[in-house]
Simulated assay, not measured.
Amino acid sequence: MQTKKTYTLQEATKKMEHYCAYQERCHQEVRQKLETMYMIPEAIDVIIVHLLEHNFLNEERFAKTFVSGKFKIKKWGRSRLSYELKKKDVSKVNINQALATIQEEEYIEVFNDLAEKRLHSIKEKDKFKKRKKLIDYLLYRGWESYLVYEKATELIK
């Protein structure tokens, strides 16, 4: 028989301070973590307020960090970034502020590099199938459809 570990309010608060200090977190992640620690809803609210007051939890900072990381490392487009942040219950204002941090020139440059790299890795001989594979890949990554179709037409003639 296994007993579940219980935490006092102070222990849980300290644990969540470390959790938030290690990496930027959104409110939803913190709430889920506290629920897995079997904290009651009142205690969860008290801890979240504490984290907000002491700047351990900041949704605007989280959104900017998330966008920056996923754009630079995974090369996601604005649509995918926006979708993923919405899934994490980040407010529309914070999503828009975070997306605004991406420079337009850098955005287009990353898109062009990604499209050309992917095109060279597609082994398909049929140009229509090759075009579809490129388009599907770029759309899945969250790039705007007008950019994707324009680039596919330009690269595959």
Rank of each mutant, 00 (worst) to 15 (best):
6 T>P: 00
7 Y>V: 10
8 T>R: 04
8 T>I: 13
10 Q>L: 15
11 E>C: 10
13 T>N: 04
13 T>F: 09
14 K>Q: 12
15 K>C: 13
15 K>Y: 15
16 M>T: 04
19 Y>G: 08
19 Y>E: 14
26 C>V: 06
26 C>D: 07
27 H>P: 00
28 Q>W: 09
29 E>D: 07
30 V>T: 06
30 V>H: 03
31 R>K: 03
32 Q>I: 12
32 Q>N: 04
33 K>W: 11
34 L>F: 13
35 E>Y: 12
35 E>W: 11
37 M>Y: 12
40 I>D: 10
42 E>Q: 08
43 A>S: 07
43 A>G: 02
44 I>R: 01
44 I>S: 03
44 I>N: 02
48 I>P: 00
49 V>R: 01
51 L>N: 01
53 E>F: 15
55 N>Y: 13
57 L>E: 06
58 N>Y: 10
59 E>L: 10
59 E>G: 02
62 F>P: 00
63 A>C: 07
65 T>Y: 15
65 T>L: 14
65 T>K: 08
65 T>I: 11
66 F>E: 04
67 V>T: 06
69 G>M: 12
72 K>S: 11
72 K>M: 13
74 K>M: 08
76 W>D: 06
76 W>I: 05
76 W>K: 12
79 S>L: 14
81 L>V: 04
83 Y>M: 13
84 E>C: 04
85 L>A: 03
85 L>F: 09
85 L>W: 05
88 K>W: 07
89 D>Q: 05
91 S>F: 13
93 V>F: 15
96 N>M: 14
97 Q>G: 00
97 Q>I: 13
98 A>K: 01
99 L>C: 07
99 L>M: 11
100 A>V: 03
101 T>H: 06
102 I>L: 15
102 I>V: 10
103 Q>E: 12
103 Q>R: 05
104 E>T: 04
104 E>D: 09
105 E>P: 02
105 E>N: 04
105 E>D: 12
107 Y>H: 04
114 L>S: 08
115 A>L: 14
116 E>A: 10
122 I>W: 10
124 E>H: 02
128 F>N: 02
129 K>V: 14
130 K>Y: 03
131 R>Y: 05
131 R>K: 06
131 R>W: 07
133 K>V: 09
134 L>G: 01
134 L>S: 03
135 I>C: 12
135 I>P: 00
136 D>A: 05
136 D>N: 08
138 L>Y: 01
138 L>T: 00
139 L>Q: 04
139 L>S: 04
140 Y>T: 09
141 R>M: 12
141 R>C: 07
141 R>D: 06
143 W>V: 03
144 E>Y: 14
146 Y>G: 02
147 L>E: 11
148 V>Y: 07
148 V>C: 09
150 E>N: 07
151 K>M: 15
154 E>F: 11
154 E>L: 13
154 E>T: 04
156 I>W: 01
